[in-house]
């Protein structure tokens, strides 16, 4: 079971960072919200593993792409750790996005060559 987690996390590593940055483009959010958002948006296709999410958030913070701050949530009346996108993070998102696009196109070209021609 531990091996399984490991494999999926590796696979998602680059992508997960991009998804988190993209989510934070809507505004500051805490870990739970980010996870839920990604899960909901993909219609539960991407099951958010907490074991990957939190290390990823902290990794982004360490790299300076997001900042964090304990703030009171409007609806809950207690503090949550909110993550905010930095300028550096926005630039990084663009980089990751274009990288992903090229990757997806490349994969598509190999997988469905006929569709490409028509």
């Amino acid at each position: 079971m531990e091996k399984g987690t490991q494999k999926r996390a590796d696979l998602l590593q680059g992508t997960l960072d991009m998804l988190i940055l993209r989510t934070l483009l809507y505004g500051p959010a805490h870990g739970h919200q980010i996870g839920k958002h990604i899960q909901r948006t993909t219609n539960d296709f991407l099951q958010m593993q907490h074991g990957s999410l939190y290390p990823a958030l902290h990794r982004l913070e360490r790299r300076g792409w997001v900042t964090s701050k304990w703030e009171i949530a409007a609806d809950r009346n207690r503090e949550f750790k909110y993550y905010r996108l930095t300028e550096k993070g926005k630039k990084q998102l663009l980089v990751e996005e274009s990288k992903w696009k090229r990757m997806a196109e490349a994969v598509a070209r190999v997988m469905w060559p006929a569709a490409e021609e028509s």
Partner: peptide, 11 residues
């Protein structure tokens, strides 16, 4: 980290 996890867990 502990606090963050706890608060999200509580939520």
């Amino acid at each position: 980290v502990e606090r963050e996890l706890q608060s999200d867990l509580d939520l």
